[in-house]
Simulated scan of single mutants.
Amino acid sequence: MMEQLGFLQIWVDIMMKCVLTIFYYVSINWMVGEFFQPFRGLWQGDPLSPFLLLICSERLSSLMRLAVKEGLTKGAKVSRSRPQTSHLLLADGCVLLGEALERAVHVIKQILE
């Protein structure tokens, strides 16, 4: 994602090292357990999570805007005089809006993939 947004390779490498070389441990009653490595990326509360979420959200947002601009899908309108809204980014998720057509569903599925 970072490469597609134009980040230099050195920044991508640094971020990947931060994600892939992390270890955690659990402390219960001030007793430290063994270190372990996560197998599914960052955990909630990791200091990098908000920044990586912003990077991914920006890419998702740009792909949705492009799909609407190219006429591949349509967003929802609150009124006739307002622009279409194809997505809403929230603090802990997102809402994708589109036509109830099979073609539009495939476009959104491709964007998510």
Rank of each mutant, 00 (worst) to 15 (best):
L52H: 02
E34N: 15
Q9I: 14
M1E: 14
L96R: 02
S57D: 12
L88I: 01
I55V: 11
S62F: 13
R65D: 08
F23N: 15
G71D: 06
L53D: 06
H87F: 03
L101M: 07
K74P: 00
L89V: 01
I55L: 14
K77L: 07
L54Q: 14
E113G: 04
R65L: 06
G6T: 09
S57P: 03
L48N: 02
S81Q: 08
R40Y: 14
G45V: 14
E102F: 02
L97H: 04
E70A: 08
L53P: 06
S86M: 01
E3A: 05
L97M: 12
V78W: 04
G98H: 02
C94W: 01
S79W: 05
M31E: 12
S61T: 08
W11G: 08
H87N: 04
L48W: 05
Q37P: 11
A67E: 01
V107E: 01
I55G: 09
F23A: 15
K77F: 04
A76D: 00
P47S: 10
R80G: 04
M1R: 13
P47E: 10
P83H: 08
V78F: 03
M31G: 08
S27C: 10
P38R: 10
P38H: 10
I111H: 02
G93A: 12
D46E: 14
M2G: 13
M2Y: 06
R80H: 02
L60T: 06
R80F: 03
L48P: 02
S86A: 03
Q44N: 06
M31N: 13
Y24R: 09
G45A: 11
D46W: 11
S62D: 15
C94Q: 01
L54Y: 10
E70W: 09
S57N: 09
F7Q: 13
I28V: 14
L97A: 03
C18P: 01
L90P: 00
D92Q: 03
E58W: 05
W30H: 12
I28D: 12
G98Y: 03
E102C: 00
K74H: 02
L53Y: 15
W43P: 13
L101Q: 08
F7P: 12
A104R: 00
K17H: 14
G98D: 02
C18W: 06
L72S: 08
D92Y: 11
G45Y: 13
L5V: 09
L48T: 05
F39C: 05
M15E: 05
P83A: 05
F36S: 07
G75T: 01
L20H: 13
I14S: 10
S57G: 10
